[in-house]
Design a binder for these strands. Structure first.
Length: 135
RNA sequence: UGAAUAGGCCGUCUUAUCGUUCCGAUUAAUCGGGAAGGAAAGUCCGGGCACCAUAGGGAAGCAUAGCGGCUAACGGCCGUCAUCCCGAUAAAUAUCGGGAGAGGACUAGUGCAACAGAAAGAAUGUACAGGUAAUGCUGUAGUGAAAUCAGGUAAACUCUAUGCGGUGAAAUGCCAUGUAAGCUUGCACUUGAGGGUUCCCGCCCAAAGCAAGUGGGUAGGCAGAUUGAUUCUGACGGUAACGUCAGAGCCAGAUAAAUGAUAAGAACCCGUUUAUACGGGAUACAGAACCCGGCUUACAGGCCUAUUCUUUUU
């Protein structure tokens, strides 16, 4: 059992854990609940697809705030890397939660370095856990 | 040695750990290999490719503009002539070197023109001379680049020649799914409402009836899509752009969108130092989205070539 869990908690980031369905994305933005945790805005929704066992995430950086594609790529890569290294908190055995759809929207006005993004992302994951276990 | 100008090139690398994507092997989880740019950018030109209700004639519009060549094509590139500018030599014109520009037509028409001048074409007159019935009627002087059968100007309208159908990979084809509408085909009807093309002519489509097929969404998948006007090397032809032949190579293919993150070191610049070394700093512009050929713009730092100037040594 623990071996299987280790598989999920791996530091991989395959396609199943990315949100790439137009329909689900639309549902998430229309019906999801959101909160702010600088430099992110998070929107979450329990995954309507009951077969799915994993959380799916989406990362977005506004084109208005960062007009150059290079900057947007850099921020998205840092967020994605932070999530990949820290997502194991979401899969903890003690506090299992239902699979979620999560959108990370970067609302910061400048490009923050990896350490800050990572620490904030860990905080956001803990908050997600709290909110999910309440309901 | 340093600086300026012009042209060309490069534009971080290595290792470790953890990841992403594509391909290929064996095995069902590993292993091996590939993975952003010179501009991928702006979307300004030119093509390929695809579709549309034929795209024909005329007008309009837009683009181009010596001559010759290259090319799939071009508004690009190469060569060359003339013009203008700069420098050198010789001396008033030529030779050499470098640079600049949308370089057809002002004996078709219209417009415009600083200063000077009476006057720059529907406006008037100075001096002297000539002439007349009379008059700037005529000549010369005077102004000016140009003055009464003029000349300049087309990055002024315009004219001439040539080219241009439109849309744009969210194109388009196939598969899967299968409530309406819609769409397609055939038949019927011959009324043609209305619609398409910037406009006109022309042409084309075409509502309401019947039959058959198809049919969005849920919900996406595959093709298009990466082997190509391809890259490298060599030979030959050509002043050159470029072409031909031969050999070798495969060099991103994502799709809410991969090509990364972290750490250590090297390389680069500055300061101290004989040196080792130590400390500090900088690491630009920027991210493929159907594919090519150009143009334009951005760019830290470094390298090479040519010319000019400067410094040191001989």
């Amino acid at each position: 059992m623990s071996h299987k869990l280790n598989n999920i908690v791996d530091k991989t980031f395959p396609k199943e854990e990315r949100l790439n369905s137009k329909k689900l994305i639309q549902e998430l933005f229309e019906e999801g609940s959101s909160f702010y945790l600088y430099p992110f805005k998070l929107i979450t929704l329990p995954n309507p697809d009951k077969d799915s066992k994993k959380h799916q995430i989406l990362i977005s950086v506004s084109k208005k705030k960062f007009s150059r594609a290079v900057d947007r790529n850099l921020i998205k890569r840092r967020i994605r890397e932070s999530y990949r290294l820290n997502k194991h908190f979401l899969y903890s055995e003690e506090r299992a939660i239902k699979p979620l759809l999560i959108a990370y929207i970067y609302i910061g006005k400048e490009i923050h370095d990896f350490r800050l993004i990572q620490s904030k992302l860990i905080k956001s994951i803990h908050r997600l856990m709290d909110e999910a276990s309440k309901s």
